[in-house]
Design a protein around this nucleic acid. Sequence first.
DNA 1: TCTTACAAGTTGCACTTGCACCTTTTTTTT
DNA 2: AAAAAAAAGGTGCAAGTGCAACTTGTAAGA
Lengths: 210, 210
Amino acid sequence: MNSPFAGLSKSQINKLYNLLGVHIYNFSKNQEVLPTIKNENIVCIVTEGSAQIKNIEYNGNEIIIENLEKESVFGTNISLTNNENYEIIAKENCQILVIDYDNLIKPNNTNHNYFNIFLMNLFDITSEKIRQKNERIRILEKKQIREKLLEYFEVEYKKSYLRRITLPFSLKDLADYMGVNRSAMFRELKRLKEDNLIEVNGKRITLLYK
Amino acid sequence: MNSPFAGLSKSQINKLYNLLGVHIYNFSKNQEVLPTIKNENIVCIVTEGSAQIKNIEYNGNEIIIENLEKESVFGTNISLTNNENYEIIAKENCQILVIDYDNLIKPNNTNHNYFNIFLMNLFDITSEKIRQKNERIRILEKKQIREKLLEYFEVEYKKSYLRRITLPFSLKDLADYMGVNRSAMFRELKRLKEDNLIEVNGKRITLLYK
DNA sequence: TCTTACAAGTTGCACTTGCACCTTTTTTTT
DNA sequence: AAAAAAAAGGTGCAAGTGCAACTTGTAAGA
């Protein structure tokens, strides 16, 4: 994923910080982020470390909305919603930059070229984000776990055209990503193994049908 | 949803068209859009009428990816994916404006203020789009149809705080939106009625528990 | 090293859902 | 106004899944 500061010099980034009146916060591993940054309308950038947005359901189920690696962009107008049932956790020590959305979408900003470059980067990043959301939606709307898994494998396969896929997260997380029960997913993985369609070694899955 | 041309005069819009080298295509109702506009990397705007992006599965199932009303923005870098199994259909006679993504993301563009305003609008629109995707994802990841329906009602309720919700599409489309079987959804709606939680009159649903 | 915690992996069972196949109602087209 | 098409509504049944309740494996902390 592109950096929101791609194409900007250090001094331009500083000017940008001034123009937008950014706030910078630091979080230690496993700390909750939201209580500090929560505000009506903000856009945030992870400038150091990583974090994770989770959705917490009334029954205690946790679902990953998004993994925030370094240079990820998120915010009320991007990743989050009015819904209160989510939390953001620092996965490592991390630094988060907070921009007021109203400060961002101010017509006068466009008088500064460094702002416009930044905005272009943001557009590029959010576009990519939509593509990722669509990718997940296509998996979620599949009605059967087997179909979900095969769709997931298909998408991952097409990223490198290698039969060996390495999951970017745990199998438990994969179940959450697909919106299914973990043990039901394991059962289906087992069936796929029995049908000689895949081999599973931890996070490494080999597609035997490719 | 905001217009991508908000804050721009007619003459600025014309300059923008020139700068970006846009192509304008017209489609008649029910016509397929993709064969005409398909290209590697494009951003499109529905300037007149409306269309619909559908995902067609191997078994013939059609799933709505997105309804494109007037002034909707979509494209390879926004709504679509590398996956070939979708189609775009004009729901009414419509006009679609096509911008080459590389023309859009050209640093020199930012020398023109009308472009920067346009870009700001695009960012605003894509941000909103992500929020909508997240809304749908939250419904899709619910494991039971009843939970999906109640989550959907919750989201719609919070938009106006009126107990009476009017669906923006058919019940069949609602089933697709939630990624469930149509008749299974009807069955669950019936149960919700039996439990005196809702009343259904066509596209009008009244929440009795609010 | 022992303990603790968490991911991986398994299984039975009840419940939910998808699917096929209907009927009825509403909308659109001729 | 009649015919055709699409949406709404319904039901039995088989298959799939969620859930609970385990065991095993593995990495991390005391």
